[in-house]
Design a protein around this nucleic acid. Structure first.
Lengths: 211, 211
DNA sequence: AACACCTTTTACTGATCAGTAGAATTTTTT
DNA sequence: AAAAAATTCTACTGATCAGTAAAAGGTGTT
């Protein structure tokens, strides 16, 4: 009777619509933030009705959480696809550049720095937390490698480096540079990377790819 | 008839209560953020009733704006009181350390990085904006001085430095270092300053007070 | 002690918004 | 083309919360 075929076909269409909803949510979260984003907004932006939206995600929290999970998965993918000959520092630079470009293209900040309730919401999701931990451990490994190879300051605790690194992905300086500084996107990425890795003080030379 | 005396006495009590309200709002904003903070919260925290609260501030927006204005005034005061023999870079370090300590003591992040609507609310307030501009110009002068004296990277645009500097005052790394890293406050301040001015990369020596 | 002023309490309005129910309509399948 | 499925539309519920009104209760002033 082709039941399996029919179901999988429906499922495919369903999944496509689901991705469209996630895309719409990403745009809305980036532009209005979680609190000001309404489910009517999302439904309108995705081109479906609110009741249909609830067929996909059973609450606003779940919807936002899934968006963040997809973002973490994308980051994980990016890391996995990096050229293996890159030095640890180059990998970190590369990932941060990717995250900043995602944001500049209307994507989301990576980290739920925004508000306490959003952070609480995410930490309630096991699926989110397990992915965050996995990514964290991966980056921890890279940072420690970079320290051993003399690319990062060895006397700076790894978690200090990592938390600062994460914070750069949601750094408000990005928006200020775009809105008030009127820099093109690539300049913004370049400057953010330089400030992140080299700081503001004078008297420094970039060590780039000295593997 | 002592009318002036009576009025000024009442006024004094009124102003005292007003400061208490601002303190309470600061705490609530720091803990729950603007959206989750209710006027009942603030009234309760300040120990007065909601209608009394509205005798002081005619809306939630105005209340939050006044808190931010007071914060900018405090920053301005801090700058004005700095020892004049400090080098420009030392002044910047000093001010950032102050801002971070304010936050660690339960104060507010300096910058409305939090949400688009909060930023919009603030930019609608002339009193806020004029203070922000004044502080910005002051810091701009200090940064340019520091660049001329070779303390900051001269080839980095001043606005890039400034926006990154502002962002450090509301950097979520602070909270991560406290909650997950369990560092004492002074270590957090020290690490934040080091990351801000020297970056993460290796091969750098601190130039501290080389005026 | 009487008065005037402020504050509190209680209770309300009106708006917004998450989430849902059920009828009408479109699309897909056969 | 008819049947079956999903989707959309309209309208609703219930909760939250900013902001307000008006009566009741304090507090200090004279």
């Amino acid at each position: 009777m082709g039941i399996l075929g029919r179901l999988s076909f429906k499922d495919q269409a369903f999944k496509l619509r689901e991705q469209a909803v996630l895309d719409a949510t990403t745009r809305m979260l980036a532009s209005k933030g979680f609190d000001l984003m309404t489910m009517d907004d999302v439904a309108g932006e995705a081109g479906i009705s609110k009741p249909s939206l609830y067929k996909h995600f059973k609450s606003k929290d779940e919807l936002a959480t899934e968006v963040m999970i997809r973002l973490l998965d994308d980051a994980q993918d990016f890391l996995a696809r990096q050229a293996p000959e890159l030095s640890p520092l180059a990998r970190l630079r590369d990932l941060l550049a990717w995250a900043l470009r995602v944001r500049l293209e209307g994507g989301l900040p990576f980290l739920p720095s925004t508000s306490p309730q959003v952070r609480a919401m995410l930490t309630r999701s096991l699926r989110y937390v397990s992915r965050a931990i996995k990514l964290h451990k991966m980056l921890q490994g890279i940072v420690e490698q970079a320290k051993r190879q003399g690319e990062l300051q060895a006397d700076m605790p790894t978690d200090v480096i990592l938390y600062s690194y994460y914070s750069r992905t949601c750094d408000p300086a990005v928006e200020y540079l775009r809105v008030y500084g009127k820099y093109p996107d690539e300049d913004i990425v370049r400057h953010m990377l330089q400030v992140c890795f080299d700081g503001m003080s004078a008297g420094r030379r970039r060590a780039d790819g000295e593997s």
